[in-house]
Design a protein around this nucleic acid. Structure first.
Lengths: 166, 166
DNA sequence: GTAGTGTTACTCGGATAAATATTGTCCGAGTGACATCGG
DNA sequence: CCGATGTCACTCGGACAATATTTATCCGAGTAACACTAC
């Protein structure tokens, strides 16, 4: 079980975009440079987030991405599901119904107990992700980060955001 | 994010092996036939479970696998970790420290807030898995399954277990 | 000086390859059972 | 008839391919800004 790295970059980028004021946008290329990741690959993830209604994309020069909702309305679960897809990690293949001399399907009216337990755990996982909103991430970041880190982020956003202010 | 199918087969097989009495064993080939999965591939998963101390393997004719511990001492988490590996699904690459004109490493004394949140969710996931023991699965299966299913399982175990009784 | 217009450069989006993880297969080492042979 | 022994078939375990998924890349469509021209 390995989570796509796109989740990490997606959340980070969403957090950065939360720092924009008003209608300002930030191009994908800028975010890619800021985090040292592949620009074109990042584009794919940002596209997923846009499809999911988490981000808005503005085409053309001075275009880019910005948040489509308030930071309070974005949870980590939203981002993870947008990038990884909505399907649960555990997928029951109903192997209990397979194999030698199988029974008819009507012999299995109750759901597979293993499936139930696995999905229950995954539900707990998603609940925890759902309880964490982007605001919480930003607050924790602001409270525990070194001033240099905050300054670098602020400088970056001010340098690359569109439209340029000033 | 997709969980290996080996997890599903691993749990099912462990549950079947729990039905053995005394020192009896069941060969991997029998389990593979029962569930209609690749025998050699199943062998790999059973090997992982043996390494983890969940199963015991007996070589030679009339050999096979059996539980290495009591059903109360085996949780779903044990099985999942044995097959998927102990590492968490979310792996922080510290991309916050990468990119253009990076800051020195000592600018990041606090752990990444995103990493903390993701691992916290995963901790909840593992806790839920850990609370579910193999006993619970067996109880639920015994209580909610059609008589035909239980009979098929019993017949299968009695037919293929080693040493053959009778 | 101002409005209209054409070009241009920059953006995102989808189709196309490489790398990696998962899935599946094959062959070899080891072991207990069985048949055989001798007493 | 009973015991020792050699062969054998069956087991698990690790090394070797095929497939699926993730990762990365390239190219095209679209758009707003800019410069230029005409008025």
């Amino acid at each position: 079980m390995k989570l796509s790295n796109g989740v990490e970059t997606g959340i980070h980028c969403t957090a950065v975009l939360a720092g924009l004021k008003g209608d300002a946008t930030l191009p994908a290329l800028a975010l890619a440079e800021y985090y040292g990741v592949s620009p074109t690959y990042l584009l794919k993830h940002l596209g997923r987030l846009t499809e999911a209604g988490i981000l808005e994309s503005v085409p053309g020069p001075s275009g880019g991405y910005r948040l489509a909702r308030l930071v309070d309305d974005i949870s980590l679960l939203d981002v993870v599901l947008a990038i990884e897809g909505p399907e649960p990690a555990f997928r029951c293949n109903e192997i209990r119904q397979c194999g030698a001399d199988p029974l008819p399907a009507d012999a299995y009216p109750a759901p597979c107990a293993i499936k139930v337990a696995m999905l229950k755990a995954e539900k707990a996982y998603r609940a925890a992700l759902s309880e964490t909103r982007l605001t919480d991430i930003l607050d924790a970041h602001g409270a525990s980060s070194d001033p240099r880190v905050l300054a670098r982020g602020k400088r970056f956003v001010e340098t690359r955001q569109r439209p340029q202010e000033g």
